[in-house]
C-alpha cells in the first residue's frame, strides 16, 4: 500500500497562513528551560497534543532551529533525536518500523531520557560481563596465562 505521503497534494491560492498556534509553545519551552536551570527538573512537551494548523509545526521547528547533536535509536522502529539551536531543547521523533511518526515530543533536559541506558539494562550488562569474564577465566585464549 502506498503511504499517504506519496499522494501528490497541490495547494492553491494563498501562501501559508500563520495560524498563530506555534508561538505559544516557545513560551512553554522558556518556562521549561528556566525550571531545568533552577531545579534540574526535566520537561516533555507532546507536540501531538497541540492544536496545530497546517504549517504551524514547521514554523515552530524553524524557530527552534538545529543544534549540534543528533542521535538515532533503533528500538521498535527508529527514534530520531535532534538537538535544537537552544541547548538542552531536544526534538524527539518516535517512528514505527515503517518510518511513520507515532509521536513527536520536545524534551527539555541535559540528555534526552531515551538516550540514557535504563538501570535494569546496566544490571543485565554487568551480569552479562561477569558471565563472560567467568567464562574467560576458565578458558582465556588471549590472557597472559596462555603463554
Amino acid at each position: 500500500m502506498t503511504s499517504l505521503g506519496e499522494i501528490p497534494v497541490r495547494v492553491e491560492g494563498e501562501t501559508q497562513v500563520d495560524f498563530g498556534n506555534a508561538r505559544p509553545i516557545l513560551g512553554e519551552v522558556r518556562h521549561a528551560l528556566a525550571r531545568l536551570l533552577d531545579s534540574g527538573e526535566p520537561t516533555q512537551i507532546d507536540l501531538g497534543a497541540m492544536p496545530f494548523g497546517p504549517g504551524d509545526e514547521q514554523r515552530l521547528l524553524d524557530w527552534l532551529g538545529r543544534g549540534e547533536v543528533n542521535a538515532s535509536i533503533e528500538a521498535l522502529g527508529p527514534t530520531r533525536i535532534q538537538e535544537t539551536a537552544l541547548r538542552g531543547v531536544w526534538l524527539v521523533e518516535y517512528l514505527n518500523a515503517d518510518e511513520q511518526r507515532i509521536a513527536l515530543h520536545l524534551e527539555i533536559d541535559e540528555v534526552p531520557r531515551l538516550l540514557r541506558a535504563p538501570r535494569e539494562d546496566l544490571r543485565d550488562g554487568l551480569a552479562e560481563l561477569d558471565a563472560r569474564l567467568a567464562d574467560a577465566d576458565g578458558n582465556d585464549p588471549t590472557g597472559p596465562a596462555a603463554d
Partner: peptide, 16 residues
Amino acid sequence: GVSRRGFLKFCAATAS
C-alpha cells in the same frame, strides 16, 4: 524482541 528502550518508547507513544 522489544528492548527496554523500545518499551519506553512504546510507553511514550501510549501516553500520547
